[in-house]
Structure formats: C-alpha cells, structure tokens
Design a protein around this nucleic acid. Structure first.
Lengths: 341, 341
DNA sequence: ATGAAAGCGCTAACAC
DNA sequence: GTGTTAGCGCTTTCAT
C-alpha cells in the first residue's frame, strides 16, 4: 500500500533533493548518470506517480484534450451513428500516444453551452465535431483562446484549424457516377444543407457534376431530412411519388439503409428499379442487400488527423496547414445499375 | 481578456478574504447573505472559474471518471460496434449531471496495461467495460483501491460492483422461443464463451431452456467465432454444411447481419429456410430484410446505471446493491418462423 | 461572520 | 551536479 507517495518521499529515500527528482522525471537540468539510476530505482520501488494536478498548476497545462460533440436533440438520437465512435477512438488513440487524455463532452442543448470545464480543468485544446458556421458554439470556442480543431464544421473563418473529408468531391463523384450511367433525375437525400456544411458541400459537389456534364440542374432534387435510418425509410414515399426519379444518392449510409427497407417492403428492387448510392462506407453498408455502392470516408483517420493537428498547435510545433481535407473514394458494390444499353 | 483570474482577485475586488470566497463557492462555512451576493457578483464580473487542479490537490478528488475499454486487437476491430458508443454516451451523460468528467482510455494490448493515469490524475473511480474474469486487468483495477464498476464482466468476485444485462435470461428466452416453435436443432453463434462471460451467460441460458423443455442438449451447437459482421458471414458455410440445423440464434445482431448477407448470396430464405434471432437490438436490426427478431438490451441505460453506481460509491452514499442486472426483452420481428402446423 | 495562514505536490529560477 | 525556495490556486483549521 503505497498511499500518496510524493516527490519528497522519493527524494528522502534516494537521499537527494526534490529538485533532482523532478529533473530526473522530466529529463531537465544536469543530473549525473548515477543519480538518475538511483532515483529511477527509488521511484519504482516506492511506486511513485507524479501528481498531474500539481504539475498542471505550475505549467498551466493539463495534458487534457476536450472533445466536444454537439447533439441536436431532435428526434434522431445521434447515439446510433457509429461514425462518432470511430472518430472518438481515433482521437483517443493519438491522444494517448502523446501523453494526453481525452475528456468527452456531449452538448445536448445548444442553448446552454457550458464550456466552463475548459477553464476549470486547464484543458490544453479542444476538438469540436460538426459545429455549425456562425453559431454561438463556435464563438464560445474561439473565445476560449486555446488551440482548437473543428471537424466537419465548414467554418468560413480562414484562421480556424479544420479537418473534413472532401465532401464536395464525394458529392461530385457520386453524382457523376450516376450521370455516366444514364441517370438524369437523381434524388439527393441528406440533412439540412442550409445549416450543415457537410451536407452543403456534398450537395454542391453533386450540382457541379450536373454543370460539368451539361445536365439540367432542375432534375436534381434534394430531399431534406434528418440523418437516421428512420428518416431514410420515411423518405421512400416521396421517391415513389415522383416517378421520374431513377436514382437516389443518400448523403449517409444510414439513410440508404432505411430507404432500402422501404423499398423492400414495397417490392421495389434495387438496382433494377432504382440505383442507390450511399455515403460514409460504414461497415454495415457492405452487408445490405444489395451491398451498397457508396462514397467512403475514414472516420478513425479523421479523428487521428484532428488530434495530431491539435497537438501540434498545443506544442507550438510547425503546423503544416490549417485545413486538412481527407480524400474520399467511391466503392463500387451492387446497388446501382446503368440505364444505358 | 480575463486571464487567470484567481480566488485572490475575486477576494480583492469583493473586499473580502479568499477564505470567504471559497466558502461562497462551496457553500461551506457561515457567510452573510449580503457577502454571498457581493462575491457572486464579483465572480461573474471577473469571469472567474475555480481551478480544479488546485482543488484536486487539496481534496484528493479530481471529479474525473476513468472509462476503460479493452479492445482485443484481433482481426475484428471493435471500432464498429455501435454498442460502445451508446454505452459511453450514457456514461458521459450521468457524469456530467453530477459534475464529473469522463476520461476515455482504450486498452489495445492486454500485455501493456497502463493504469498510471489513474494515480497521476487522481481519478476518483473507473468504469471497466467487458473485462474478463481472472485476468491481469481485473487485478490491476482492484489493486488501484478506488471505486470501480465493471460492466459486462461477469467477475466471480462477490465484492465487485457490476452491471450487466440479464444475458442468461436473454439466452433462455431466445432459445425457448425457438423451441416453442418446433426448432430443435439450433445453432448458437457468439464469441468465445470460455473467456467472455456475456457469451457464456447467454449460452447457459439457452442450455437451460433445453433442459427445462426436455430437449436433447446435444442438438444445441455453439459456433465459436468473433463478434463482427464478417465472422457472421463466414459462419454461414458451417451452417449450410450441417443440414439438421433449422434455426440460428446469434448472440449479437452484428453476427446476424453478416449471416443474413451469406444467406442472401446463397439464395437461402429467412425465415423460410432458417429462423434467425439476434441479440442486442441495435438500430440496424430493425432494418435488415427481414427485420430481425432479437433480444433487446439497452446500452445507453447500462452506461447510465454503471455511472450512477460508481458515483454513489465515490460519494459514499448508500449503494442499493453491488450488482445490477438490467432486464432484457424479446422483440418479435420477421426473421423467425414456426415449424409447427 | 470573516480572516490569516498552512500546506496539497510539483517546477523552475537561482544559489552553491 | 545538486539543493533551496518561492510560488501555482485552492481548502480548511483556527483565531478573532
């Protein structure tokens, strides 16, 4: 039972001063090799662990990273989107590698943002997921005056550190892929693109494909919904009510999975009756029937990159860039067909 | 720019001592109503936030909860199991409600368990997910000598605080449900039940159903695999190679989703050719074709309960019990059929 | 009802 | 190469 072993105990046992112990621990100052060994041995014997709170007080750095996840408390509990978990596990991994720890905070209600823990705990930097441009959360984060990285946020602020996937390219690729196969009347399905930058970027990408290929932009329909299987399911009605539509490009695999259920129940075949493309490439997208053609992004990687960017900021090392755009790719599976002969 | 406002600043501005300010903040001691008001006003004006590190040093309590998630770094990256995310969001929610913060730690390699952060950061208590009985992790956690709650761990230690679903009852219900419908040759599919208590409990439950209903226990097959869609898919071969099997009870919806894909590709119909039951009731289980009959458990709730139990321990309030078993229920959907006329 | 002061465990400037 | 010491910002005991 080594209760509360402090640097003093180590110093006493090793017969040196606490300053020397501190130097050994931090690799600072000049300490003879012999002393280093003695001190290290004593540390081990005594089962000494440095007290990070004390260190935090001196250094004004807690080695803590705040992860802020805003949940729109609407109907669709975002609980069920595996995307977050992947992101967080990427964040955790890199944090740990650099001796940081991740503190999770889920903000449920935008009206009562409470960022006080950042000051109270001397949080070194924060990673914010899916913030929305021109929103109190963004201002409050920036007002904190500490390093921050925004993921999937599409802030206009050029100075902000941001990480996102190449959503526009993804939207472009998906739409072009469909266009190339003879689909002209495409329904896009996603979250509110006026507010959600990710959705807007994907939408803009799809639109660009229409322009580039000289198709009529009016044939592009946007179904504005929430990102959940349920909403994907419920949007099915609209699609079959608009008989011109031949393909649907869901801006989330989650939506596509819901829609697939609706189609199944109504005896509509994919890809025979409709071509369907998803977005995200979540694991389940490979296991739908038919397996979903989708735009892949890597959430774990996204979390890792965001954390690296943050830590570089915190430690004032060179930061390669303020904005990292992760590549996406199209995974061809079996939910699409060509209309061409 | 209120940089580093301390209790001294507040005391100066309010023209009281720091002790009084401290008393106001903590609601301790006797302070006149008037002073309270003045101090509170000053705190607001100055934008003062108490420094938790300093408080931690005095009180030996950090208001930090460690969440420890062991990942078996095998093939199946557990990244993709939405279960964890639900659990964690439940933990985070209750933590925040009680002014704690959750620090995530994912232990990837059992050989190098590093729990030093618990001592270094004065972590008040830990929640461990899916630990395995008689394993170094468990000993090290218990050696920490701080409050802990084990989730889904099935430790034999009667003194350990534990939370899990009624897995045995779930196994029982699922098997009995199938038995009642004329299925005798049932394949169970799950993780290694010699090591994983959750799987063992579900298995024992299923076995019990066989006993209770006087069926031949030899007709119960256990397919030992890893919990991933891929493994569910790959286990399909074994099932069709054992023609007596008429029903499969997957101890995770994830597995059932994988198996469903195998069946689909091989033109095998569910529930016409096989009855299929899952476990967990993840959101996707409602969106498979056919929708999955499954045993439901509530991961968010599990996280919440575990956190409550932990905080009660930490704050030495009465703890109702050391072991909480959450109820499960059977959700009837469309992946099963009766063999009876 | 309020204040003075000790001390939590550490780092870092400075002295030796 | 090593030791002394002054805080970091707070809580808490003990005076007043």
């Amino acid at each position: 039972m080594n209760k509360n072993v402090t640097i003093h105990d180590v110093a006493n046992h090793a017969d040196v001063s606490i300053a020397t112990v501190s130097n050994v621990i931090n690799g600072t100052g000049r300490v003879s090799e012999k002393t280093v060994q003695v001190v290290k041995k004593t540390i081990k014997e005594l089962g000494y662990y440095p007290n990070i709170s004390a260190r935090t007080m001196k250094k004004k750095s807690s080695k803590l990273i705040g992860v802020i996840i805003p949940f729109l408390t609407e109907k669709g509990d975002l609980h069920d989107n595996p995307f977050y978990w992947n992101l967080v596990s990427g964040i955790e991994k890199i944090s740990r590698q650099h001796d940081y720890h991740a503190v999770l905070t889920i903000i449920t209600n935008h009206k009562t943002i409470d960022l006080s823990f950042v000051k109270e705990r001397n949080i070194d930097g924060v990673i914010v997921i899916g913030a929305i441009y021109n929103t109190p959360l963004v201002y409050e984060i920036e007002a904190l005056g500490i390093p921050s990285v925004f993921v999937d946020s599409y802030l206009m602020d050029e100075g902000a550190y941001q990480v996102f996937s190449d959503d526009e390219q993804g939207g472009y690729k998906g739409a072009k892929y469909l266009l190339d196969r003879g689909h002209k009347q495409i329904a896009l399905m996603g979250g509110n693109k006026n507010v959600n930058g990710v959705m807007r970027a994907r939408y803009e990408g799809a639109k660009k494909a229409y322009y580039d290929e000289n198709f009529n932009i009016n044939d592009l329909i946007y179904i504005d919904t929430s990102v959940s299987m349920k909403c994907g399911y419920e949007s099915g009605r609209f699609i079959i009510d608009n008989p011109k539509i031949t393909a649907i490009f869901c801006f989330s695999d989650i939506l596509a999975i819901g829609l697939l259920k609706f189609f199944g129940e109504n005896n509509i075949k994919v890809p025979q009756n409709y071509s369907l493309i998803g977005f995200d490439n979540i694991e389940a997208s490979e296991y739908t029937a038919p397996a979903l053609t989708t735009i892949a992004q890597n959430a774990v990687e996204k979390g890792k990159v965001a954390t690296q960017l943050l830590i570089e900021q915190i430690e004032r090392r060179k930061t390669e860039s303020r904005k990292v755009i992760l590549p996406i790719s199209l995974i061809e599976r079996y939910s699409h067909a060509s209309l061409l002969k």
